[in-house]
Design a protein around this nucleic acid. Sequence first.
DNA 1: TCAATGCTTCGATTAGCATCGAACTATGAA
DNA 2: TTCATAGTTCGATGCTAATCGAAGCATTGA
Lengths: 226, 226
Amino acid sequence: MKEGPDIARVAALLGDPARANMLTALMSGRALTAAELAQEAGVTPQTASSHLAKLEAGQIVVPRKQGRHRYFTLSGPDIVEALEVLMGIANRVGHNRVRTGPKDPELRRARVCYDHLAGDMGVALFDGLAKRKWIESDLNGVALTPAGINFASEFGIDLDGLRKKRRPLCRECLDWSARQSHLAGSFGAALLDRFYDLGWAKRVPESRIVRFSDAGKRQFHDLIGD
Amino acid sequence: MKEGPDIARVAALLGDPARANMLTALMSGRALTAAELAQEAGVTPQTASSHLAKLEAGQIVVPRKQGRHRYFTLSGPDIVEALEVLMGIANRVGHNRVRTGPKDPELRRARVCYDHLAGDMGVALFDGLAKRKWIESDLNGVALTPAGINFASEFGIDLDGLRKKRRPLCRECLDWSARQSHLAGSFGAALLDRFYDLGWAKRVPESRIVRFSDAGKRQFHDLIGD
DNA sequence: TCAATGCTTCGATTAGCATCGAACTATGAA
DNA sequence: TTCATAGTTCGATGCTAATCGAAGCATTGA
């Protein structure tokens, strides 16, 4: 009966946790693939596909085909604006996501985000690599420096192998618990794998927690220099 | 798992049609009662009560008790901002509400909105009353002028009787089909009643359409002076 | 005190939607 | 061609949330 712009339809599209996660991930302005968005949202690819179809139909996101990937971006700056206003409101009214209970601060310290390290140690890793000038972060994203390439081979990471994959080598991922970036991308994943291989850390089964051994912790801090 | 402001929760609150209708009605900045909001949303009082409880819990609206009424207002300017951005998006992507089909333009011409006249003729009525300086509209709302009070009694409306009701005498109501205001409140309702009584118009059963007779139409236009 | 009005709570129903397993399509690589 | 990867479609399941009727408070007015 009522006429006018249908707020509810748009808001409902942003009102599902999985979709909201995808959209916040896209706020960086970078285009992400369906699989990456599924990871961000914490759902299976099928579910993500269904969500993305809805977002696309609602013109909230725009797909771009490239090879066998589909990259998605937000359909315009107004979407970012909306997300930001909503974040502000959520913040004001104290609607923050269930913080991981005080009983497992481990999760906040070090956890996997997809396949790379997140949490305080993830942020520390990012900062440390930047301080050593192994990575450089600018508006276009993150990239390895020549010194960083050097370090990678010394640390036992096969960069050439990684480059063959279609996945970007370095990618920033916003860590909400720390409100700072940590390192994603295939290089970020390779680093974590290397930590496992070196015995510095291992994953706690059935959880996202990454548990460092005492020795591993020491070596980790040596690595990033603090 | 993810942390940070919970956009989805806020967006979901705005993402229900009934609630969105209530909130847009509140965008005028005026406080409305639960019953009025139920009308705006097109739901029963029980349903509205449930929605309002949710909006209140989510701190989107703020209640204020006055007598046996509960007046609601938006909890802050950020809510208005959010609604406006969402309207912009909805507009851009063409998510407009199902416009009443071309087969019944009558509905767009004259219909009841709760108990007062809406549609093109509702807007014309509002403009006409303002042009004759019978009502005055400013930031605080609409009010009858001394001349308007005069007119009301001549037109057979018992203003004193209306004043006894708790309902505001005059209220602006945004008409989306015309994107302009029409007159609500008990005076607006009384005018429409008078149109019925005078035989100028009658309601089409089972619909919101108000059908004016040819003679009624003439007299209506005489009244508002165009 | 009784009646009327405004609003809420309770309970039952219904509908929609998110989710995932399994199977299918499409693109690229060997 | 064959295999692997990225993504989608289909179908089934289960949960959540909107809705309203009926009954209950609470406030006001007579």
